[in-house]
Simulated assay, not measured.
Amino acid sequence: MLRLGVNIDHVATIRNARGTPWPDPMRAAKLVEEAGADGITAHLREDRRHIADADIDALMEGLRLPLNLEMAATAEMQTIALRHKPHAICLVPEKREERTTEGGLDVAGNDNALAHYITPLREAGSRVSMFIGAQPDQIRASARIGAAVVELHTGAYADYDTEGRIAERDAELAAIREGAALAASLGLEVHAGHGLTFDNVGPIAAIPEIRELNIGHFLIAESVFIGLPAAIREMRRRMDEARG
Rank of each mutant, 00 (worst) to 15 (best):
residue 119 T to A: 15
residue 163 E to W: 13
residue 124 A to V: 08
residue 72 A to H: 02
residue 89 I to S: 11
residue 88 A to T: 15
residue 142 S to W: 00
residue 171 A to R: 05
residue 73 A to N: 05
residue 77 M to Y: 11
residue 97 E to N: 12
residue 95 K to I: 08
residue 129 S to H: 04
residue 133 G to W: 06
residue 81 A to Y: 01
residue 121 L to D: 14
residue 90 C to A: 12
residue 131 F to Y: 14
residue 127 R to C: 04
residue 162 T to Q: 14
residue 169 R to H: 01
residue 164 G to P: 03
residue 154 T to L: 02
residue 97 E to D: 14
residue 160 Y to W: 13
residue 140 R to K: 14
residue 126 S to M: 09
residue 171 A to N: 04
residue 69 L to D: 06
residue 134 A to S: 15
residue 158 A to L: 01
residue 173 L to R: 11
residue 107 V to S: 02
residue 135 Q to I: 02
residue 160 Y to G: 00
residue 176 I to Q: 15
residue 108 A to W: 01
residue 122 R to W: 09
residue 101 T to D: 08
residue 163 E to R: 13
residue 109 G to V: 10
residue 137 D to H: 03
residue 78 Q to L: 00
residue 74 T to L: 00
residue 174 A to I: 00
residue 135 Q to G: 11
residue 82 L to D: 04
residue 89 I to Q: 09
residue 112 N to G: 04
residue 180 A to N: 07
residue 155 G to V: 08
residue 84 H to T: 04
residue 83 R to S: 11
residue 152 L to A: 07
residue 77 M to S: 12
residue 66 P to F: 15
residue 92 V to W: 04
residue 92 V to K: 11
residue 81 A to W: 00
residue 86 P to E: 07
residue 99 R to A: 12
residue 78 Q to C: 02
residue 111 D to Q: 15
residue 141 A to Y: 04
residue 157 Y to H: 07
residue 125 G to R: 06
residue 130 M to N: 08
residue 79 T to H: 04
residue 93 P to R: 11
residue 113 A to D: 13
residue 85 K to D: 05
residue 129 S to C: 13
residue 66 P to R: 11
residue 144 R to N: 03
residue 134 A to Q: 11
residue 176 I to K: 15
residue 154 T to R: 10
residue 79 T to R: 09
residue 142 S to K: 02
residue 83 R to N: 11
residue 163 E to V: 00
residue 170 D to H: 05
residue 106 D to N: 14
residue 98 E to T: 13
residue 153 H to P: 01
residue 66 P to C: 06
residue 109 G to C: 10
residue 68 N to K: 03
residue 120 P to A: 14
residue 183 A to V: 12
residue 140 R to I: 07
residue 157 Y to E: 00
residue 135 Q to R: 13
residue 176 I to G: 14
residue 151 E to C: 08
residue 172 E to Q: 12
residue 94 E to G: 10
residue 121 L to W: 10
residue 170 D to N: 14
residue 107 V to T: 01
residue 91 L to D: 00
residue 108 A to S: 14
residue 183 A to M: 02
residue 164 G to T: 07
residue 112 N to T: 09
residue 112 N to S: 13
residue 129 S to D: 07
residue 79 T to C: 03
residue 123 E to T: 03
residue 158 A to S: 13
residue 121 L to S: 12
residue 159 D to G: 03
residue 125 G to C: 10
residue 90 C to M: 10
residue 146 G to Q: 12
residue 156 A to H: 15
residue 72 A to M: 05
residue 94 E to V: 09
residue 151 E to Q: 15
residue 75 A to P: 05
residue 164 G to Y: 01
residue 176 I to T: 10
residue 83 R to P: 04
residue 141 A to Q: 04
residue 80 I to W: 12
residue 89 I to N: 10
residue 110 N to C: 06
residue 142 S to T: 01
residue 142 S to N: 04
